[in-house]
Write a protein that binds this DNA or RNA. Structure first.
Lengths: 348, 348
DNA sequence: TTGAAAGCGCTAACAC
DNA sequence: GTGTTAGCGCTTTCAA
């Protein structure tokens, strides 16, 4: 078996406690002794058993970020940001996938999310109720990403759904689009959307606002619904609409960049020019957008900030030793930038 | 604090041991008692403390996949595959990022990779020596991804570097390319490449073979070097070569799809038509390739198989209770498919 | 069929 | 300054 603290203590001729203190740089131990102990430990290739350490101390120094799919660019970039932020704070971040892609699997993975080997969780939990989240977190701090309940009981970080969407649609109107369509949202009236707090619905609110400002009314006919917010789905849905001849749009706001990529492909395959026939803008600002053809205009969310905020809040709660939902939950929304690239650039 | 097994035992009027057995469905406990215990546990919202459990049992039920960057599509898709494979086996997989993107950070993160909270590690460790890997793994099973030492002492899964690259270059010759260039590899003669076992060099070996078969000689002039295997770097390097007028190619094999995306952009911005002026093929088969414009021909690696093999081997070693490098390391190379899409389709 | 008790390797009072 | 000791919450003999 691996070498334990006892072994090191014996070899160094001290007690296990001294080894523990020395290794963690506790000033109680004399410099000289400490150095000797560390030396012996290194020579024996000792490393602490994190399991035992955290059983005793109640901390693991690990935070977990749980998202539906590791292989969606937005999540992947967010996770990279979380890892970097954690690194800067000297803690370890791990990522976990919640979904298997197949329906019905979510829950059983989620049950493992809240396992005790991490000190806290950043969770993209779309669709879970507050009660479920509380149950799953089992007393550990949680920071939600784009939490549905918005002003709910949990610490949360948000993408700038309403303002970002409003800016996107406004941009399309400003470059001269007359018929703006939305890809990836179910239509509902503004007041209903204001009650629902799904990400898609929150972005829809922004769209409603932009339409109103430009003295138009957003209707169901202006939306292209998707089952799933992914590239394939968007490709199929947009293709179908074009083929059905039900495609009067000269501007499209896609709820995510992934959706936009599928949309661009559908347009291209049907000989529709971007941006001249149809201008396209996405939402997220994933790096891939600068490599698509045409390059993708987008509401570039400050993904790195989002990650840092989430880690900061989580670490704070862990420090506080809080359990369960915090008394005063924090709600942070990060900024965005309207990134105009080829897909909506009509000035040239 | 959270509810412990003791609490449950007390509430159910049994001993902690019985709770432990009942919860894990040990047949020793009478059906009726077990049901009662489970009932009480649920009512109390009990969940086992995985830290204590694994201190005692020596297992955590968690495997870790450590890669350089979470936000590179190939890794992201591999990690998703690892998660799914682990899920199917009833264990938990977490992903960890090794690099922060900044140089010099790798090592200190790596030191945490081998922390004791997981039973084994799938590691994409490019650049580490065998000794370092052994030290880092600290007695836990490791499966390497595209291990440099190839026939080395570790269990490893490999992408089909040589054959895949040979197939890629052969494809370019077959569609009529006269001047095939390689993006993302440092030139070296075939025999030298055969000694180096970097992924790039192994792919280069396949290129050498394809050139020989077609009675050509691969030289340094046929390669475009990159510092980093990423999209931005490829974009810059290819752009520079075009601008310098040092770009005689009519076919390009990019060492990864990510490189190919940057290459496509550079070609497009310089008005070079793909596939007519230059045919392009990548390597990996990431999903993004079917959404680029033009869509990307590629050596589509069976990423899912790669993930499953890695998980299978790792779980086997964990079962065996092996420590350190295995006596008979397994080396598995997965298959590929030459996926001809628009970027190299000259038949239309 | 169940309970008592001995640790897994570590940390943190408290003694010396 | 350093050692002793009592657990952290669980699993697993062994005894009842």
């Amino acid at each position: 078996m691996a070498v334990t603290m006892r072994d090191v203590a014996k070899a160094a001729g001290v007690s296990p406690a001294s080894v523990s203190f020395a290794l963690r740089g506790d000033p109680r131990i004399k410099q000289e002794t400490a150095r000797h102990i560390i030396d012996v430990a290194n020579r024996m290739n000792y490393s602490v058993n994190i399991t035992a350490k955290s059983l005793r101390s109640g901390r693991t120094g690990v935070i977990e970020a749980a998202v539906f799919q590791l292989d969606r660019p937005f999540y992947a970039q967010l996770l990279a940001g979380v890892s970097n932020a954690a690194f800067d704070r000297g803690i370890q971040a791990v990522a976990q996938q919640i979904s298997t892609g197949k329906v019905g699997h979510e829950k059983s993975i989620l049950e493992k999310v809240a396992n005790k080997f991490c000190d806290g969780v950043i969770l993209s939990a779309g669709g879970l109720s507050d009660a479920e989240i509380i149950e799953l977190s089992r007393g550990k701090p949680v920071v939600l990403l784009d939490d549905q309940s918005y002003q709910g009981p949990f610490d949360s970080v948000f993408t700038p759904c309403e303002n970002g969407a409003e800016a996107a649609v406004t941009h399309l109107f400003e470059i001269g689009c007359e018929r703006v369509g939305l890809v990836g949202t179910d239509f509902m009236p503004a007041d209903q959307a204001r009650r629902s707090m799904h990400v898609g619905d929150r972005r829809l609110i922004g769209c409603h606002r932009a339409f109103e400002r430009h003295e138009r009314t957003l209707t169901k006919a202006d939306t292209i619904q998707l089952f799933d917010w992914d590239t394939d789905d968007a490709y199929r849905a947009v293709s179908r609409r074009i083929e059905e001849g039900d495609f009067p749009f000269d501007g499209l706001f896609c709820m995510t960049d992934a959706i936009a990529f599928g949309t661009l492909r559908a347009l291209r395959e049907h000989g529709i020019g971007v941006p001249d026939d149809v201008a396209v803008i996405g939402f997220d600002g994933v790096r891939e957008g600068s490599y698509s053809a045409p390059t993708l205009s987008t509401i570039a969310v400050d993904i790195d900030k989002l990650a840092r905020e989430a880690v900061d809040i989580l670490c704070e709660r862990i420090e506080e030793g809080r359990y369960g939902a915090p008394a005063m939950p924090k709600h942070v929304t990060v900024g965005y930038e309207v990134l105009v690239r080829e897909s909506s650039n009509r000035t040239r």
